[in-house]
Computed example of a mutant assay.
Amino acid sequence: MYSDKATAKAKPVAYTDDWSIEGGSRAWLSRGTFQWDFTLPPPMPGESAIPSSRLTYQGLDGVSGELFARLDNPWGIFLKGNIGVGRFKHNNEDSSIYGRAYSNMLSSQANGRLTYYTADVGYDFLRDGTYKLGTFLGWTYYGQKSDTVGCLQIASPTLACLAPGDRRLIGSQDTDWNAPRVGLSAEAMLLERWRLGADVAYLPWTDFNGRDHHLLDPKTRVYYQRGNGGAGVQIETMLSYFLTNNFSIGVGARYWAMWTKNDSDVTNCRGCIPDQTHALAKYSMERWGTFFQASYKLN
């Protein structure tokens, strides 16, 4: 006869030759950036493009909640993924050239929201009872929406913005990233109850769609942003501890980055004087941080 205490202290069964599923929830504490560089086309063939504006959203401190799961079968094939939603705050810097005058404006955040998911199918080509190593193919999505309030001019006194303390809504930025991903996934049991895992994914191609509203101008400007090509990376590590044979808690770190091709993407502007139907732009994003998780595994 075995006591409950002895059962609780038994070594967890890590990786079996049968079906298993593990799922749980995470809280991701993260910081991010988003930047886009706007460049006017060359005035004459053979001449260089003209840099016009750079918008930098930095200090995007947020917290998100997510659900995750992984399904393994006896043949080494696995399915895994996660989905999350969250909120963030940010500061916005808009540096532009108006004619011959340089402008640099600072703004703050009114509302920030983020959503994301990953979905992968893979195969463990190395595995036994204490470790497994596999490769996977999948897809990722990351969306970010925010509103901008207030405006402080810090470069040119002749290009005034809002008065100090004016918290008027002056703009908004929506971004959506989609990309295929290919990578490696590894897990190993350390000692009796500690497990170390890592995912490393390369994004060979990115697709970006966005919309940037400038509400401060007499005639509202709307930039319809489109970009592709480029690349990206997604890296994740996690250390977990099994409190029982099936239930574990853990802490991990994550880094995501995506970008489009340089000066080869199109931005259309409605409300510009005159309307711009073709301009060059480059877009990039980063998000990194620490997550905490709780999961349950059934073998």
Results as ranks from 00 to 15, higher is better:
residue 1 M to G: 13
residue 6 A to T: 11
residue 10 A to W: 09
residue 11 K to Y: 00
residue 11 K to A: 09
residue 15 Y to E: 10
residue 16 T to G: 13
residue 18 D to V: 11
residue 21 I to E: 01
residue 24 G to R: 10
residue 27 A to D: 08
residue 32 G to F: 02
residue 33 T to S: 15
residue 35 Q to L: 13
residue 35 Q to I: 12
residue 37 D to G: 12
residue 39 T to C: 00
residue 42 P to K: 07
residue 43 P to C: 03
residue 45 P to W: 07
residue 46 G to P: 06
residue 46 G to M: 11
residue 47 E to D: 10
residue 52 S to Y: 12
residue 54 R to A: 09
residue 60 L to E: 12
residue 63 V to R: 06
residue 64 S to V: 02
residue 64 S to W: 03
residue 65 G to W: 11
residue 66 E to F: 06
residue 67 L to A: 11
residue 70 R to Y: 01
residue 71 L to Q: 05
residue 71 L to A: 06
residue 76 G to A: 04
residue 81 G to H: 02
residue 81 G to T: 09
residue 84 G to A: 07
residue 85 V to E: 13
residue 85 V to W: 14
residue 87 R to V: 12
residue 92 N to T: 14
residue 93 E to D: 02
residue 106 L to K: 14
residue 109 Q to M: 07
residue 111 N to V: 08
residue 113 R to T: 08
residue 114 L to Y: 09
residue 116 Y to E: 15
residue 116 Y to S: 15
residue 120 D to H: 04
residue 120 D to I: 03
residue 123 Y to P: 05
residue 124 D to S: 04
residue 125 F to A: 08
residue 128 D to T: 00
residue 130 T to R: 13
residue 131 Y to V: 04
residue 131 Y to Q: 14
residue 132 K to M: 05
residue 134 G to H: 02
residue 135 T to F: 15
residue 135 T to S: 14
residue 138 G to C: 07
residue 139 W to Q: 09
residue 140 T to V: 10
residue 140 T to N: 01
residue 143 G to H: 06
residue 147 D to R: 11
residue 148 T to V: 14
residue 150 G to T: 07
residue 154 I to A: 05
residue 156 S to H: 01
residue 158 T to C: 05
residue 160 A to M: 00
residue 166 D to H: 05
residue 167 R to V: 06
residue 167 R to S: 08
residue 168 R to L: 10
residue 170 I to T: 09
residue 171 G to W: 00
residue 171 G to C: 07
residue 173 Q to N: 14
residue 174 D to M: 13
residue 176 D to L: 15
residue 176 D to W: 12
residue 177 W to D: 04
residue 178 N to R: 10
residue 178 N to D: 12
residue 179 A to F: 13
residue 180 P to F: 10
residue 181 R to P: 04
residue 181 R to S: 10
residue 182 V to L: 11
residue 186 A to Y: 10
residue 191 L to D: 12
residue 191 L to Q: 12
residue 191 L to K: 14
residue 192 E to V: 08
residue 192 E to P: 04
residue 193 R to H: 06
residue 198 A to C: 06
residue 201 A to I: 08
residue 212 D to L: 01
residue 220 T to D: 08
residue 221 R to D: 10
residue 222 V to C: 03
residue 231 A to G: 07
residue 232 G to K: 01
residue 233 V to R: 03
residue 238 M to Q: 10
residue 239 L to N: 07
residue 240 S to I: 02
residue 240 S to R: 03
residue 241 Y to S: 02
residue 245 N to K: 15
residue 245 N to H: 13
residue 248 S to G: 03
residue 249 I to D: 01
residue 250 G to A: 02
residue 254 R to A: 15
residue 254 R to M: 15
residue 255 Y to D: 05
residue 255 Y to E: 01
residue 262 N to S: 13
residue 263 D to S: 11
residue 264 S to E: 15
residue 264 S to I: 00
residue 268 N to M: 05
residue 269 C to R: 03
residue 272 C to I: 02
residue 274 P to W: 09
residue 275 D to Q: 01
residue 276 Q to V: 15
residue 277 T to W: 05
residue 278 H to D: 12
residue 282 K to L: 00
residue 286 E to K: 15
residue 288 W to Q: 13
residue 292 F to R: 00
residue 293 Q to A: 13
residue 295 S to W: 00
residue 297 K to N: 01
residue 297 K to W: 05
